[in-house]
């Protein structure tokens, strides 16, 4: 299935791009993160589990256990700092 991935703020800068589309068989947000981590390089560094990263699935805050539907939009970003 196909997922649309978005990166924001320091994660976007570390990955080197703001968005990408991926064919994946990952069942969960966490499995998708593992798949991206396995690519190594900037993805490996940007999404490392030592970093504080928040995730959203279809524009709602999600954790790694969240199930990925086909065509999902998944976002990775640092803790938020608005207001």
């Amino acid at each position: 299935m196909r997922v649309h991935i978005k990166y924001f703020a320091s994660i976007r800068e570390a990955v080197g791009q703001g968005a990408e589309t991926l064919e994946t068989s990952a069942a969960t947000v966490g499995a998708l993160r593992d798949e991206l981590l396995a690519k190594g390089g900037t993805h490996g560094e940007a999404l490392a589990r030592t970093r504080a990263i928040r995730m959203a699935l279809n524009q709602v805050m999600a954790d790694e256990e969240a199930t990925l539907p086909d065509g999902a939009e998944v976002a990775f970003f640092p803790p938020v700092t608005g207001g």
Binding site: S10, V80, T81
Partner: peptide
């Protein structure tokens, strides 16, 4: 603590992301 905004500051030491 929950709306997706991120601040980046310009300082004399350079640009930096604000920590939560």
């Amino acid at each position: 603590s929950h709306a997706p905004f991120w601040k980046k500051e310009q300082t004399p030491e350079g640009a930096r992301w604000v920590d939560a």
